[in-house]
Simulated scan of single mutants.
Amino acid sequence: MSATQLPKAQKAAIVQKDLTIAVETISVALPGAGQVLVKINVAAQNPVDWKSIEWQEINPGMGTGCDFAGIVAAIGDGVTNVAVGERVAGWVVASAGKTTAFREYTLVDARPLYKIPDNVTDEEASTIPLAIATAAIGLRRLTNYPQSAPYNRYVLVWGGSSSVGLFAIQLAHLTSFKVITTASPKNHDLVRKYGADVAIDYHAPDSIEQVIKATGKQGGVDYVFDTISEGSSVELSVKALRPSGPRKICVILPLNTEELDPSVEYAAVTCASILGMDLTLFGHHFPRDERNYQFGIEFTEQVAGWLRDGRLKGNPYTVLPGGLSGIQDGLAFMKSGKVSGTKIVYRIADTP
């Protein structure tokens, strides 16, 4: 598609003064050097989309939405890794204020982008980028990922049926970890299908005892990946760490570690490092990490191969009606805690 064929305006979901979402018309920006303009077919919803608004990381007049899947509409000078017309998926940091996914067109750096294999739908592809980046960077903070785990090493994924949890399970399984996870009983079959060796009800009063028992003589897990990081999940999950092990836990939200077990190493993950960004988020500064950026470029290519040969799959998803006009209801639904074992996605063409 040439620049003359691109629309000059597009619809986008914009935060209003009362912190609700409304569809507005904004301009379409053309790609500069090293950039790609993507026509979004499907956008996926994440908890950060509503939390960033509530926590005032995203202010009125800004957009929201991180995950997208679509077609390359235009490329800037120097772009060689993708071509116009190719199907791609990716994610953006909406709170940075440059672009978002809840719109018809998004302007992103050419790397890293995921090329979508023919056997994967746009809906499935849209569930992948942000969550799998979080899972991958989290495992890098905990272990020597992507190197294979030593024999008989256990990782506990707390919140295995969450979007990040399902990818953490798959990536840990692919690197030979024994994976124990917690989830509601209704999602036990789901997490096992995605590679968990053991599924435990996190509501059970003896959930930690069950985790430790599942590790046999080892007496606990080597690592914890807490994909919830709210309520008592951190304080509870670290009790499953074996006394003589690495005693490391990865969390997806910043913590006040002064109130936590000092014998445990706590690592907060921000997947923005995969995008090569220097970012301040939720009051914490995360500097650019060139090693994670280069890892991200290689990782996106690896993910495309895994999707193609069936070793990796996206989240189960639920399409909400109305496209961009349905986002306000979708965010409220997620905030109420009613989303479980599925990821909400929107088909942008459904926007009235």
Score class of each variant (00 low, 15 high):
Ser232Asn: 15
Ile40Cys: 08
Gln56Pro: 11
Asp109Cys: 10
Thr143Cys: 08
Ala204Pro: 02
Gln210Arg: 14
Ile53Leu: 10
Val120Arg: 10
Ser161Leu: 07
Val221Ser: 05
Ala172Leu: 09
His188Leu: 05
Ala13His: 13
Ile137Gln: 15
Glu24Met: 13
Asn144Lys: 15
Ile249Thr: 03
Asn292Tyr: 07
Gln210Phe: 10
Ser229Gly: 00
Ile249Trp: 01
Gln10Tyr: 13
Tyr151Met: 15
Val79Ala: 10
Trp306Tyr: 13
Tyr145Thr: 01
Ala304Pro: 12
Val251Gly: 00
Ala13Ile: 12
Ala74Tyr: 00
Ser263Tyr: 09
Tyr223Ser: 03
Ala172Met: 07
Gly322Asn: 01
Asn152Met: 09
Asp77Trp: 01
Gln294Gly: 08
Thr300Pro: 14
Ala83Ser: 15
Phe286Arg: 11
Ala33Asn: 14
Cys271Gly: 10
Phe225His: 06
Pro262Asp: 04
Ser237Ile: 01
Ala196Cys: 05
Leu307Tyr: 10
Phe68Ser: 04
Gly61Phe: 02
Asn292Val: 00
Val339Lys: 09
Ala172Trp: 10
Ile200Trp: 01
Leu255Thr: 05
Tyr223Ile: 02
Ser95Ala: 14
Gly76Gln: 08
Ile53Arg: 06
Ala96Glu: 13
Arg242Trp: 03
Asn119Thr: 03
Arg140Gln: 12
Leu30Arg: 15
Arg153Asp: 10
Pro185Val: 09
Leu236Ser: 12
Thr342Ser: 07
Tyr266Glu: 00
Leu253Met: 13
Gly245Lys: 04
Asn41Trp: 14
Leu174Asp: 00
Leu156Met: 06
Phe177Trp: 06
Val164Ile: 07
Gly85Glu: 01
Gln218Leu: 15
Ile40Tyr: 11
Met1Asn: 00
Lys248Thr: 13
Leu253Gln: 09
Ala204Phe: 04
Asp222Tyr: 03
Cys66Arg: 10
Thr342His: 08
Thr300Lys: 15
Glu290Tyr: 13
Arg103Gly: 08
Val319Tyr: 06
Leu107Arg: 01
Val42Glu: 11
Pro316Tyr: 05
Thr100Arg: 10
Val38His: 02
Leu139Ala: 05
Asn315Glu: 05
Gly314Met: 01
Gly305Ile: 08
Arg311Gly: 07
Thr318Lys: 15
Gly63Glu: 01
Ile228Ser: 00
Asp197Ser: 12
Pro254Trp: 05
Gly322Tyr: 00
Ile132Asp: 07
Pro117Asn: 08
Trp91Lys: 04
Glu86Trp: 06
Ser233Ile: 05
Phe282Arg: 15
Gly165Met: 07
Gln218Phe: 14
Ala304Glu: 14
Gln170Met: 07
Ser263Pro: 04
Asp329Asn: 10
Leu275Cys: 09
Gly165Glu: 04
Trp50His: 10
Tyr105His: 00
Asp329Met: 06
Gln218Met: 14
Val72Ile: 04
Gln5Tyr: 04
Glu290Phe: 13
Glu57Asp: 13
Gly323Pro: 05
Ala83Phe: 07
Lys338Trp: 01
Gly195Gln: 00
Ser95Thr: 04
Asp77Met: 09
Gly330Tyr: 02
Arg153Phe: 13
Ile128Ser: 05
His173Pro: 11
Lys17Ile: 06
Ser176Arg: 15
Leu130Met: 11
